[in-house]
Design a protein around this nucleic acid. Structure first.
Length: 270
DNA sequence: ACTGGCTCCTGAGGGC
DNA sequence: TGCCCTCAGGAGCCAG
């Protein structure tokens, strides 16, 4: 499940292949994602060079002189470069062909992703306009967090997963950050102390940075250890319910908070 | 302005 | 062995 680190790793891997190449065609197999794929993707992109591949939150922004395409990978989406002659498989919904013998292939079994046209000013698109700061910038600070959390009664976990507060923190990293900060995920965000807020902001940045540096983290990466220098971020609580806490040995608990499974140590996160 | 609930989709995994 | 049921999850959207 791509969270911000996975999206950033995808962006960094594809940017050198894409930027400077010219789009020769867009080939669609399935148009019905979370939203229908915008028609401009087919009418505007072909013939244009790719000038940028940026990221805002978990959105990828494919920039061309004609405008920008927004790509979201949802939960099961992948964006890969494949040789032009590579045949599509199941769930390969869309191909973007380039003039450098490369095809960018969008694959998404559960179709929670999206691909939309955002024109010349993508950051004013409704899906991007109200997004909170990037978590790894100074704008996401304890001071900012405190101002946003004041008077709020919502649990801290859904709060930090709210993209209008801060982008890019999904279910995995929310649970992990709260564990590192020693905060119970159901704590009303408005009653956190300034010290807890400082620790949580710091923990989020640390976890995301570590995940990006190690190429992203999903639970399935735990079995993918064929490289000796590959050090997957060890998940402390996510999907470890019933197993002992790595710090104190107390069984990790699982609880639904805001329609999402949350994992925490009742001893370390009172 | 907030908050909580619903929804899309399909693979995985548990239970019988 | 195999079928069926439930669950998971990003985030927009809606209702209270």
């Amino acid at each position: 499940m791509p969270e911000l680190p996975e999206v950033e790793v995808t962006r960094a891997a594809l940017a050198p292949l894409l930027i400077g190449a010219t789009i020769t065609g867009v080939h669609l197999r399935i148009a019905k994602l979370r939203h229908p794929i915008s028609s401009e993707i087919f009418t505007q992109l072909p013939g244009n060079p790719i000038t940028a591949l940026d990221r805002r939150g978990k959105y990828l922004l494919l920039g061309t002189p004609a405008g920008t395409a927004l790509i979201h990978l949802g939960m099961t989406g992948h964006l890969r470069s494949v040789p032009a002659e590579s045949l599509p498989g199941p769930y390969d919904h869309l191909d973007i062909s380039l003039d450098n013998n490369t095809t960018v292939r969008f694959n998404d079994p559960r179709r929670f992703g999206l691909m939309l046209w955002a024109g010349a000013k993508p950051l004013t698109h409704p899906l991007l306009a109200d997004l909170g700061p990037e978590p790894l910038t100074d704008e996401f600070s304890a001071d900012y967090f405190s101002r946003k959390a004041r008077q709020r009664s919502v649990a801290v976990k859904p709060f930090i997963m709210d993209a209008k507060i801060v982008v890019g923190i999904g279910n995995i990293y929310a649970s992990e950050s709260l564990f590192v900060a020693g905060i119970n995920p159901s704590t009303p965000v408005g009653i956190l102390t300034s010290e807890q807020i400082t620790q949580l902001v710091s923990a989020s940045k640390q976890i995301l940075t570590t995940a990006i540096n190690h190429g992203g983290t999903t639970p399935e990466h735990h079995v993918n250890t064929d490289s000796t220098d590959y050090f997957p971020l060890r998940l402390a609580v996510y999907q470890r319910h019933g197993q002992p806490c790595l710090t104190c040995g107390t069984p990790i608990q699982k609880q639904q908070i805001g329609q999402r499974s949350s994992f925490y140590c009742p001893t370390c996160q009172p």
